[in-house]
Design a binder for these strands. Structure first.
Length: 987
RNA sequence: GCCGCUGUGGUGGAAUUGGUAGACACGCACGACUCAAAAUCGUGUGGGGCAACCCAUGUCGGUUCGACUCCGACCAGCGGUACCA
């Protein structure tokens, strides 16, 4: 045995020094090779340093970058710092240390830690969002937004901590309370800068272009939900009874996605915000209404959340005219209608909306059902016949309950298999109740039943009527009866032959009905308050009855439009982006407020507007940033008129710097423009972007928006795609060993420095990849790391042996002997391309251990006797395979691979070698094991040479003693052969 | 509630996409080396049974010669979202 051990500390340091001193990973625009842009989400350099979650994504992107370089690509793989933000500022409040000091220290720590892992970043392109040379361009982008009318000032509600007297970012609000002091957070309207991400020029592109991206479906879905597009209509309701107003002239517009339900609108609800605006233009409302509005508006969203979902509201006394049927319906004000969405007013359709229903129940408002569920038979004997018209019928269906035992009366038809309820058509002059009573008596003989609920539920069932030979469209009206007593006329023998009467408990009804709508009926039976919120067929809607929801919506909107009372409309949940923070440690917003000229942009040549030093970092208490206290900075002159003016004191949010950093990497030192378009053309778009799913919505949406904007104004060449990140990969969260999130307060954080010192950077890299699929959430397990450590140590020992044998001249070559290297090349290549890096590691181990513990490229050397034996006889190895193995391993464990590469006598860098290729014919094993199944169970196995034909496999399987025993003389019914895999015998 | 994802040994996970479930690794047990320990190496390791065999991929059902994989219903966990009409 070789006693000397791999000294990872010395080896890793040695190669890192060489790599970072040289130009090995510097990306050049001049290269003739095809480009690849592999991007990591840049970190916020926190005071805690790196934790083991960071290197997971960095390792994956580094493996991919190193792989791509070896396949002949020029790879741009940069790193930088998203360094503005709150922790540094809070630290400054506590200690007085300037955030720029803290930031500098933290960046140094992060950089040292990242470099200790041997990542192949191009450090010449490092960016830092707090560098004036960088934020000059962040400010420039803001000016462009302002210039194009996409940045504007407005009063907007923000999270406000009344104790700290400051605005808070959403991230600082935890469970409705201030992160720092625990005080419940309020909503407060303060002057803000907003960016118009909802601009029609962008919102549809932000939504539709998602379809073109190779991103995880879940992230695309989150963005779609966040944008929240709803298609529907604006409908105008005339108002009566607004006292203090010119009555006839008043109307209210509602937004609805369901114009088909308009005949079911039994009241109208306006938001407190809308009510306030009506009050402000002279509506003389009752004190109840004004009190309610005042109270609702004083309550923050967060408080509303903390309260129960119990809905509250007040009748305004106003009446609205339903434009569909002219009906006057009451107008209520309630806080379950949001002021900021749609028109701030809704038509309430309690028959088909859960929230409206709950409100209607509470305040005893009428419920009217106007959409009925629809079922179409598409399979079996009752399947609707294509091309034939439907015969429409109103029919009744009786649900009869025996109150004594709670059972329901059902019928089983005998000639055709049909389990159902008492059903029948209406005869001339009958109403539904009469028809039901008649059918009940005719079919069952029961004489005394009592109607308990009106026929309010109906289901449309479309099927082929096998007896009448027509397509039937039945509207089944459900009537609920109770059996008063069991008095019953005798049923005729003929009736008894035709059908049985059975009584079923409620729980026995599940699965009993044989009609397509059968299971659905249970909703009505089990829940008297069932309301149908899905689409269906219209009823109680005049000329629109029997129409499907979609068609009815179309016709109703068209009809309303003709009256000038409605038109189709689209609404989005996405709001404009609050772009200001009342904080110090951010980019100053480059705007000057002039009493004469209003908001004036700082001229481009005066950028950057430098962030000045302050003495105190505490918020001012007025909702202004600490910058407001620096008079000599705030007071300036208007760039337009030269008169006295004041600087904007709000700063930008952290997103501002991270929106566009991937552009700056393409040309990080440009002082003339944010990046040279020619350089952008070389590198963009980002081919692969790796980062955490916590940025699923905000960062990735904002960055897409800013990119589209910059492309529209020509800063990004329009020959490039309209999306910046072609492929996105999420790394999953790494949890602590206890299965919880790693956090300082829990004391379960794993420090990568300690892991690197103990096990080495290569072990950490390999282990993070080995833990599982990249995008899974998975717990850290320090004990598990010894597995990869052992593997690397073994590899080192074996190659050291090879090296020494080589120097002793005892190495004999068996090049081309190894077949398994071909499979390894294939597995690693495919694994890297698919980012299945966990299985790559096990492929390495398998190759190294060898099939059945016998590697085919070297003698197995696992005992000292064997070592001594080969030392005497000489070591025969497939050196080509051995070198390929090192090359394949190098993206994963670059230090060890480089060291071994040198030990084998190479003086160049392993990362600049050609990526190996494989011979497909040698990937397939020479011999394959074939299994023999009988009725799906494995009964025998045998080994044959690969490519044995099907017939030979079949006869070999049938000839087997074991199989003959199982067949027991019976002839196989069927034999299925899967080439090179199995023989399946059916008996 | 809604949207999305995930359920496989004691643990992390694998399974060529419908073809031998548990690869690879951790842990554990036993053995070798050692005065001893660590390290290292070897053997074994889903459960039941002496065995032939049987059971087993969250649960129940279906399709199939054959299901972790496809379909239906349900359960559990994680993440996002919160009255968006």
């Amino acid at each position: 045995m070789v006693q000397e051990r791999y000294n990872h500390q010395a080896v890793e340091k040695k190669w890192q020094d060489i790599w970072y001193a040289g130009q090995d990973f510097v990306a050049s625009e001049q290269s003739a090779k095809p480009k690849a842009y592999i991007l990591d989400m840049f970190p916020y350099p926190s005071g805690d340093g790196l934790h083991v979650g960071h290197p997971e994504g960095y390792t994956a992107s580094d493996i991919f970058s190193r792989y791509l370089r070896m396949t002949g690509k020029t790879v741009l793989h940069p790193m930088g710092w998203d360094a503005f933000g709150l922790p540094a500022e809070n630290y400054a409040i506590k200690t007085g240390t300037h955030p720029s000091e803290t930031t500098k220290t933290n960046i140094a720590t992060f950089k040292r830690q990242i470099q200790s892992l041997g990542f192949s970043y191009d450090w010449s392109r490092e960016v830092n969002t707090t560098d004036p040379e960088y934020y000059k361009w962040t400010q420039w982008i803001f000016l462009k937004l302002f210039e194009h009318g996409l940045a504007y000032e407005a009063e907007a509600p923000i999270n406000w901590c009344p104790k700290d007297q400051t605005g808070l970012a959403n991230e600082e609000v935890v469970g409705g309370k201030c992160e720092r002091c625990g005080t419940p957070v309020e909503k407060k309207n303060i002057r803000q800068w907003l960016v118009k991400i909802t601009d029609p020029k962008y919102i549809e592109r932000l939504l539709n272009d998602l379809d073109t991206l190779d991103w995880p479906e879940s992230i695309k879905q989150s963005q779609r939900n966040w944008i929240g597009k709803s298609e529907g209509a604006h409908i105008t309701f005339a108002l009566r009874g607004i006292t203090g107003q010119d009555e006839d002239k008043h109307s209210v517009q509602v937004f609805t996605t369901r114009p088909d339900t308009i005949f079911g609108a039994t009241f109208l609800v306006i938001s407190p915000e809308l009510a306030k605006s009506w009050l402000s233009i002279g509506w003389k409302a009752s004190s109840q209404v004004t009190d309610y509005v005042a109270k609702a508006l004083a309550t923050s969203d967060i408080d509303r959340q903390n309260d129960s979902k119990e809905k509250t509201g007040v009748d305004t006394g106003i009446r609205a005219m339903n434009p569909a049927n002219g009906e006057a319906i009451p107008v209520w004000v309630a806080d379950y209608v949001l002021g900021g969405y749609g028109t701030g007013a809704i038509m309430a359709v309690p028959g088909h909306d859960e929230r409206d229903f709950a409100f209607a129940k509470k305040y005893e408002l009428p419920v009217r059902r106007v959409v009925e569920p629809k079922f179409v038979a598409t399979s079996g004997e009752s399947a609707v016949k294509e091309g034939q018209d439907f015969v429409k019928r109103n029919v009744i269906c009786a649900i009869i309950r025996n109150p004594k035992d709670g059972k329901y009366l059902c019928v089983e038809w005998k000639p055709v298999h049909m389990h159902g309820l008492i059903t029948g058509g209406l005869e001339e002059g009958e109403d539904m109740v009469q028809a039901a009573l008649r059918e009940i008596h005719e079919e069952t003989g029961y004489k005394n039943v009592r109607l308990v609920r009106n026929p309010e539920f109906a289901i449309h069932s479309l099927f082929y009527h096998r007896v009448k030979k027509v397509n039937r469209w039945g509207r089944f009206n459900y009537l609920f009866f109770e059996l008063e007593n069991e008095e019953q006329d005798l049923r005729t023998e003929e009736d008894k032959k035709l059908m049985d009467i059975v009584w079923k408990r409620e729980d026995e009804l599940t699965g009993f009905f044989s009609v397509i709508e059968g299971e659905f009926i249970l909703n009505f039976i089990k829940n008297p308050n069932y309301i149908h919120t899905a689409a269906g067929v219209l009823a109680n809607s005049g000329q629109y009855d029997w129409l499907d929801s979609a068609e009815a919506s179309k016709q109703i909107v068209a009809w309303l439009q003709k009256q000038g009372k409605g038109k189709s409309a689209v609404n989005y949940k996405l709001r404009d982006w609050v772009f200001s923070r009342q904080r110090y440690w951010g980019e100053p917003i480059p705007i000057v407020h002039c009493p004469k000229d209003g908001n004036v942009a700082v001229p481009e040549e005066d950028l950057p507007v430098m962030l000045p030093d302050v003495k105190k970092y505490e918020p001012t208490g007025t909702g202004e940033s600490p910058l407001a206290n620096i008079e000599e900075w705030v007071n300036t002159t208007c760039p337009k008129c030269g008169g006295p003016a004041k600087r904007e004191t709000n700063t930008m949010p952290q997103w501002a710097g991270s929106n566009w950093y991937f552009l700056r990497y393409c040309d990080p030192h440009n002082s003339k423009q944010l990046a040279d378009p020619e350089k952008l053309k070389v590198w963009l778009p980002v081919d692969t972007y790796i980062g955490g799913a916590e940025h699923a919505v905000l960062h990735l949406l904002y960055a897409r928006f800013i990119y589209k904007f910059l492309r529209d104004i020509g800063s990004v060449p329009n020959t490039l795609p309209d999306e910046p990140f072609t492929k996105l990969i999420n790394q999953g969260l790494i949890l602590a060993e206890d299965g919880q999130k790693m956090s300082k307060s829990r004391g379960n954080v794993v420090n990568p420095d300690l892991v690197v010192r103990e096990y080495g950077a290569d072990s950490l890299r390999m282990f993070e990849m080995f833990m599982g699929p990249l995008n899974d959430t998975k717990p850290w397990n320090t004990r598990g790391i010894v597995g990869v450590k052992r593997f690397l140590d073994r590899a080192w020992a074996v190659f050291m042996k090879i090296s020494s044998e080589n120097q002793n001249g005892k190495l004999s070559l068996a090049n081309g002997k190894s077949r398994s290297i071909h499979k390894l090349v294939k597995d690693i290549t495919n694994g890297i391309q698919a980012f299945e890096l966990n299985t790559c590691i096990s492929s390495f181990m398998k190759f190294f251990n060898g099939e059945e513990n016998q590697p085919d490229w070297r003698p197995k050397l696992n005992s000292s006797e064997e070592w001594e034996r080969v030392s005497e006889t000489g070591l025969a190895i497939d050196l080509e395979a051995a070198e390929k193995f090192i090359i394949l391993l190098s993206p994963f464990a670059p230090h060890l691979a480089q060291e071994l590469w040198g030990q084998l006598g190479h003086s160049d860098q392993v990362h600049s070698q050609q990526w190996p290729t494989f011979d497909a014919a040698k990937v397939i094993a020479e011999n394959v094991e074939v299994v023999v199944q009988i009725n799906g169970k494995v009964r025998d196995k045998f080994t044959v040479v690969a490519n044995t034909d099907d017939e030979a496999l079949k006869s070999k399987a049938l000839a087997s003693d074991k199989i003959q025993k199982w067949l027991d003389g019976k002839a196989p019914k069927k034999v299925i052969v899967v080439k090179g895999k199995l023989v399946s015998i059916v008996v």
